[in-house]
C-alpha cells in the first residue's frame, strides 16, 4: 500500500459518518498504523451535510489541515451528490463509494469523476441485518474492501472485538453487526 491514504467522508448529521471515520481509525490503529480521524465541525444538527476525514499511514502524521485531494471519498447519503461537490480534488487513480441502490454505471452519470466508482446498498443491508437504517457499518466495510487499507480478515476480527465491547449489554446484536459487515464486503460493486 501507499505510505499515506487519505479518505473523505460525506454524510448527514445523525447518520454516523463521523463514527464510521473514527471506527476506521480505530481498526487501522490496532494493526499498528498511524491514524487520524477527525470531523469538520459546523453547527451540529440532524440532517445537515457533514464531512469527516481519515489519514492512515505507516509513518507519523503531522499535517493538521483538512483533506483536499483524497485518495477515497465515501458518500453515506446519495442525496448529497446534488448539493455537495463530493468529488472535488478526488485523485484520478482513487475511487468513490456511494451508498445507493443504483449501479455504479447509473451513479457515475451523476458524478463528475472519471476514476473508479463503487456502490453499495447500505440501507438495504442494514435494514435486513440490523432491522434499521444504520449505514455506517456497511460503509466501513465497503471502504476497507475498496481501499485495501487493512485486510478483510483484520477488519472482521477487530470489529468483532469492538462490537462485543460496544454492545456488552446487548450481545445478541453482535452477530447481526458481523453479518452486516460480511455481507457488505461481498455486495460492494
Amino acid at each position: 500500500m501507499a505510505k499515506l491514504v487519505e479518505i473523505r467522508w460525506h454524510g448527514r448529521g445523525g447518520q454516523g459518518a463521523k463514527t464510521a471515520s473514527l471506527l476506521l481509525a480505530e481498526v487501522a490503529f490496532k494493526t499498528g498504523m498511524y491514524i487520524q480521524g477527525f470531523p469538520e465541525y459546523g453547527p451540529e444538527r440532524m440532517g445537515a451535510p457533514i464531512t469527516a476525514y481519515n489519514r492512515i499511514s505507516d509513518e507519523p502524521l503531522r499535517v493538521h489541515s483538512n483533506i483536499y485531494e483524497p485518495d477515497y471519498v465515501v458518500v453515506v447519503d446519495e442525496t448529497l451528490i446534488k448539493s455537495v461537490p463530493v468529488t472535488a480534488g478526488l485523485k484520478k487513480d482513487g475511487a468513490i463509494i456511494v451508498n445507493t441502490s443504483k449501479t455504479p454505471e447509473e451513479i457515475r452519470k451523476e458524478l463528475k469523476y472519471d476514476g473508479r466508482v463503487y456502490t453499495i446498498d447500505a440501507r438495504k443491508i442494514s435494514e435486513e441485518t440490523l432491522g434499521a437504517n444504520f449505514p455506517n457499518t456497511p460503509m466501513l466495510a465497503a471502504v476497507v474492501k475498496v481501499s485495501g487499507v487493512i485486510s478483510e480478515e483484520v477488519l472482521l476480527n477487530n470489529m468483532e472485538d469492538s462490537f462485543k465491547h460496544k454492545f456488552a449489554n446487548k450481545p445478541q446484536v453482535v452477530p447481526k453487526n458481523m453479518e452486516a459487515l460480511k455481507r457488505s464486503l461481498q455486495e460492494v460493486k
Binding site: A25, E26, Q36, P39
Partner: peptide, 10 residues
C-alpha cells in the same frame, strides 16, 4: 480546539 481536541490520533 477541534483540530487537536476532537481528532483521534496515536
Amino acid at each position: 480546539g477541534f483540530i487537536t481536541s476532537h481528532a483521534v490520533e496515536n
